[in-house]
Amino acid sequence: MNIFRLTGDLSHLAAIIILLLKIWKSRSCAGISGKSQILFAIVFTARYLDLLTSFISVYNTSMKVIYIGCAYATVYLIYAKFRATYDGNHDSFRVEFLVVPVGGLAVLINHTFSPLEILWTFSIYLESVAILPQLFMISKTGEAETITTHYLFCLGMYRTLYLFNWVWRFYFEGFFDMIAIVAGLVQTVLYCDFFYLYVTKVLKGKKLSLPA
């Protein structure tokens, strides 16, 4: 464990909690892509099946359980409890265009051709693009609530910090996972445009709205 991985995990946790609290406190999931949240629930489920097969540490297990639990809680709030506030018309990204190619890629390019390893690879690839329905929704409506931008910033920072973690681990541990690194780079690049808007607008107290 190094500082980049720890802060990355905490940033990820913060993102998940911010989103849950935002929906819970406002009793509304307006502006939130339910499709992205379903994709994240799939990502965690596919990746953390190893909860059943291997034990790493108490930290590792508890974080996995919290991530999975929060992901399903978020999906429940959007599609059941506060369904009336869900903005389905603007959440029109076609997720099959992500899931099908990513599934094919996971079968073709993986470390080992075994079910659990392919599911892990699938989750890594899928996570890298799972935010696209949310970003698509914001580009469609042209704006996002400030709390939603904090969520996106924390979520984007998490994988960015993991990139530093992988550089660290490469130098100090000889650890190198090509699949995670390439997917992590793709994931971070997808946030670059948003990071720019976050720094130039939201941090200066303005609401994030896109030019028409």
């Binding site: 990820h12 097969t53 974080m63 080992t112 075994s114 079910p115 659990l116 390893e117 973690n165």
Partner: peptide, 10 residues
Amino acid sequence: FPLRPPKDEL
């Protein structure tokens, strides 16, 4: 089926 090696990252 062979199990994948444990991965310590989240």
